[in-house]
């Protein structure tokens, strides 16, 4: 590869751009604030990053097949109270609670997927409706009360650290390496990408496209529930309002991470970088002393910028192809 081509490929490679953006942000925050690099801030930042990564993945994994999931937060909430209820009220151990919570997440995702794929209804409206159903069940069941008696042993993953690195971050990195391998080497992963790129062509190559869509929704539910379980482990409590602020985060992280809104493109590394950028921007806003009431505006703008970049990249790649 010629030197110029090599340079060009770095520029057009979304992952490198993301890494660069994250690095610049990191440097800027380190200079702007004395606190940013403090062990405690790094520890909390790492933990939040982990949660954001999973929340973003829950969205990304349906975006990649050209759908969306507006109920990621509602599923997260339902999984949270499931785990909380089983440990607090029923006295089950963590393993059982986690297993059931994840199963609830998968079930919710399956409901979304089956209605969307089998009945051909737009995922937007389906998941909008189910998000209300799930949230309603959540509040109806809990009457708004949190489950607080979470065994200490359950919080080791969420609160523990080794050499200052939170366990939860290590867990996240391992999970995303597995995710990378999933999309690169497994039949399911490859089929999800194929369906996302061109549903008809995938179908006409013998892939059962609607089953793949259902699978993606189920995985989305699973990941949302996983994020919820990690949240409980981190907080040591299971409030029913968990997940209410996930929707915008999920889109921001997934899109910042280079997940294509047209489907067919997702990067494990990208989603992690998306989460990192997201968490640093939030961190930065706090340190700059911005008024918390304005936060939604910044998040919204951030998404618009991210989709703008995505669009520019798409057009640029199309132009390049024509040359």
């Amino acid at each position: 590869m010629a030197k110029k081509d090599y340079f060009k490929s770095i520029l057009t490679n979304g992952n490198f751009g993301l890494f660069l953006a994250a690095l610049i942000l990191f440097a800027a925050l380190s200079i702007a604030s004395d606190n940013f690099l403090s062990p405690y801030n790094m520890y909390t930042t790492g933990r939040t990053l982990s949660l954001y990564a999973f929340v973003g993945l829950a969205q990304g994994i349906v975006l990649v097949v050209g759908d969306m999931n507006l109920s990621v937060g509602a599923i997260g909430g339902l999984a949270t109270i499931t785990a909380g209820y089983l440990m607090d009220i029923q006295g089950f151990n963590g393993t059982v609670a986690v297993a059931v919570a994840l199963a609830v997440g998968i079930a919710c995702g399956l409901i979304n997927g089956v209605i969307t794929a089998k009945f051909g209804i737009n995922a937007f409206i389906v998941t909008l409706a189910t998000s209300f159903v799930f949230t309603g069940i959540n509040f109806g069941f809990t009457q708004g009360y949190s489950f607080v008696n979470i065994p200490l042993s359950f919080t080791v993953l969420g609160k523990g650290k080794v050499f200052g690195i939170p366990f939860i971050l290590i867990f996240t990195i391992i999970a995303f390496i597995v995710l990378f391998l999933f999309f690169k080497f497994t039949i399911m992963g490859r089929r999800i990408l194929a369906v996302g790129e061109n549903l008809d062509a995938a179908k006409f190559s013998g892939i059962n496209s609607s089953n793949i869509k259902i699978l993606s929704h189920a995985l989305s539910g699973f990941v949302a529930a996983l994020a919820a379980v990690l949240y409980v482990s981190r907080m040591g409590t299971a409030p029913p309002v968990t997940g209410q602020d996930w929707l915008i985060v999920s889109f921001a992280v997934a899109i910042l991470g280079g997940t294509s809104l047209n489907g067919g493109l997702i990067s494990a590394f990208g989603v992690i970088m998306g989460a990192a950028i997201m968490v640093m921007i939030k961190n930065g806003l706090v340190m700059l002393g911005t008024n918390v009431y304005w936060e939604q505006t910044y998040l919204g703008l951030l998404i618009l910028i991210a989709v703008g970049i995505d669009r520019v990249r798409t057009i640029y790649n199309q132009r390049r192809l024509l040359e």
Binding site: R190, A194, G264
Partner: peptide, 24 residues
Amino acid sequence: KEEGLLLNSNIKTNVNITIWPMIA
């Protein structure tokens, strides 16, 4: 273009897409 190929994927993927289950 619409039903035959994954245009954004490479030759390798387009050739093997029907036999992934057989070579896994």
